[in-house]
Design a protein around this nucleic acid. Structure first.
Length: 634
DNA sequence: TTAGGGTTAG
């Protein structure tokens, strides 16, 4: 047993506090024996200040003692104190200890201290390099990560399986595909083993860089895939808009006996949100319940998003209400969900509730609020939030916020105000912003402004066929056929083709897909029969097809017949045949639902007395008794 | 001693 001099301990403690302000001062006063130093840590870390003795005296020259001390450090100041002691007694020369110190600095994101130590280290081993590069990678310091990696390569040290995943991760985060390919080549050149860490990192990098084929090729070559690798590949497909394949992989993974954990489940929930298929949403929810996964903040938020994107705002809200812990992402997700379901009031009601629960809004919360206002036609409320975000919450508006406000004003026909707002902007304008203005010009037939918007838009994205089509539709609506022809010529000269539109519909546990004029479905005859029948009924009800939209398909020339066979209409007709009366119909389109189809479905919902939900590239359209909740003014 | 995958918007 060792008796502690309490007075001495307190003096040392106060000296330490001073050193928090200045580590250099502590270094100068470091003539403290390691024993008291250790007690000091006891003092700092425990509340039992009455403790008068300890039963064990560690050996101050034992590296393990310092390792244990470092592992107990909870802040940068304590690490600096240990560092000072190591400098004082020379233990810093022990590479094992120095590496650990470097790691602890990096772990606490104290990269300046870590890098200073790294530069002072006379001897370095692969662990040193790996820890330093990993520190930069995890902190998002991409430049220094690459710079340090280049130093490794120049110094002749062979990169190892620990270092490379960090560098690959940085390639992923910076979407630097060419650097990623270089790393892939380095692994081959040095004959390094493609272990789980390396493979998962490369697959993830390729997926984030949108080269899914390369990701898949490597994944398929792997013999014993572990859970993380499976999860990365499942997420990769979802990322590259092939969420159906994510589910195929999830099933395969389980067939091979790999048991998913919470992260894998969240990835599948996210994929189901992208898929928009309610059947899958219910399946994964069942799996979560059966396997008793707790509803933490990340899983809960992902489920809110999934249910909302699969069309059930009620289920999304149920999950939201069940969640005990909610963060700003959870609240923003719920606000956004109400927003794209056209339920602006509910979205806005959440805002004061969020504040009173102690959560501060961020830029995405405001984006979701503005989006909700624009889709519900709540112009004044939207403008109020746009002002409030900077005035009250110091959240600076970026181009996306401006886009929402332009959309908000534009939908309400306040086009000049929208254009004036754009003119006052001091930040860079993007294609989304001009696209919002152009869309509003189409709705309200404002040719002059449309031309200005289109000019800016085509400067930014001269090869996007969507912009040409939109402008040609505006000219067509105004009967300016010469201009329509000009646009068509431009598209032909530049070899631009319109992106094909397609619609899919869930019936039971199956998904059916349609494209314009599609006749591949085995029930094709029945579908067209139903469509003809509907057209007659609509004609009697006074529906006149909006031929302004026939020019959507510029490549196919003016074919009025095509309008009747748009993919949305085929899917709706199929839905009416394939589902019993009273069942809601849910369909999804990859692009925006066309104006003519919007009116068509609205009338069908009234005549056939069916609830029809269309999810398109922009929002949800809930058609009920001949009305739509989307806030669009077709 | 050092290594990987998950939530909102776009």
């Amino acid at each position: 047993m060792f008796k502690i001099n309490k007075k001495r301990l307190l003096v040392t403690y106060h000296e330490n506090l001073r050193s928090i302000l200045s580590p250099v001062t502590f270094l100068a006063n470091a003539a403290i024996d390691p024993y008291v130093y250790q007690q000091n840590f006891e003092f700092l870390h425990t509340t039992t200040q009455e403790e008068e003795s300890v039963s064990h005296i560690p050996n101050s020259l034992d590296p393990k003692y310092y390792i244990s001390l470092l592992l107990r450090c909870s802040n940068i100041f304590q690490i600096r104190q240990v560092h000072a002691q190591l400098n004082f007694n020379g233990m810093i020369k022990d590479l094992y200890v120095a590496n650990k110190l470097l790691f602890i600095y990096a772990h606490h994101k104290a990269l300046t201290d870590a890098y200073a130590l790294f530069n002072e280290m006379k001897t370095r081993d692969p662990v040193t390099w790996s820890v330093m590069i990993g520190g930069f990678a995890k902190a998002g310091d991409h430049l220094n990560c690459f710079k340090t990696f280049r130093e490794v390569m120049r110094s002749g040290v062979k990169p190892d399986n620990y270092t490379l995943p960090f560098v690959i991760r940085t390639c992923r985060d910076t979407r630097d595909l060419s650097m990623g390919r270089v790393i892939h080549d380095i692994i081959l050149k040095y004959g390094l083993q493609f272990d789980h860490f390396i493979c998962a990192a490369i697959v993830d990098m390729y997926a984030k860089c949108r080269v899914i084929e390369d990701a898949q090729q490597l994944f398929e070559k792997m013999l014993n895939k572990d859970l993380v690798t499976w999860t990365v590949m499942i997420g990769a497909f979802a990322e590259c808009n092939n969420a159906y394949e994510s589910w195929v992989l999830f099933d395969q993974m389980r067939e091979q006996g790999v048991v998913p954990d919470k992260v894998a489940i969240v990835t599948v929930v996210n994929a189901s949100a992208k898929l928009g298929a309610m059947h899958r949403a219910r399946l994964i929810h069942d799996y979560i319940c059966r396997n008793k996964f707790s509803l933490d903040v990340i899983l809960g938020t992902a489920m809110i998003d999934m249910y909302a994107k699969c069309g059930s705002i009620e289920s999304a809200r149920e999950i939201f209400d069940m969640m005990k812990v909610k963060n700003v992402i959870t609240w923003s997700a719920m606000i956004a969900a109400y927003g794209y379901h056209g339920r602006g009031k509910e979205a806005l009601d959440l805002f004061p509730r969020m504040l009173s629960s102690g959560i501060l809004p961020n830029r995405i919360t405001f984006l979701s609020l503005l989006y909700a206002c624009s889709h519900a036609g709540m112009v004044e409320e939207g403008l109020r939030f746009f002002k409030l975000m900077w005035d009250e919450y110091a959240v600076r508006s970026d181009v996306k916020h401006y886009t929402c406000v332009v959309d908000l004003l534009g939908r309400a026909g306040r086009l000049d105000e929208a254009f004036n707002l754009i003119k006052t902007m001091t930040i860079a304008k993007d294609e989304g912003l001009w696209g919002a203005l152009l869309g509003a010009c189409r709705t309200h037939g404002h040719i002059e402004l449309a031309e200005k918007a289109a000019e800016s838009l085509l400067q930014l994205e001269p090869r996007n066929p969507g912009h040409y089509v939109l402008l040609s539709n505006i000219y067509a609506k105004a009967g300016k056929w010469e201009n329509v022809a000009k646009i068509r010529d431009q598209m032909t000269q530049r070899r631009l083709k319109k992106i094909p539109g397609w619609t899919w519909i869930e019936v039971g546990d199956k998904t059916y897909q349609f494209s314009v004029g599609d006749s591949t479905h085995p029930w094709s005859k029945k579908i067209y029969g139903k469509l003809g029948n509907l057209s007659k009924k609509l004609e009697l009800a006074g529906f006149v097809p909006d031929t302004n939209f026939v020019l959507h398909d510029v490549e196919e020339e003016v074919k009025l017949g095509m309008l009747y066979t748009h993919s949305e209409k085929l899917a709706t007709a199929f839905g009416l045949i394939a589902t019993p009366e009273g069942t809601p119909i849910r369909i999804t389109k990859n692009l925006r639902v066309c104006g003519d189809c919007h009116t068509f479905i609205k009338l069908v919902s009234a005549i056939e007395k069916r609830d029809i939900t269309v999810r398109d590239a922009n929002r949800f359209h809930h058609f009920k008794e001949g009305a739509c909740s989307c806030g669009d003014y077709w």
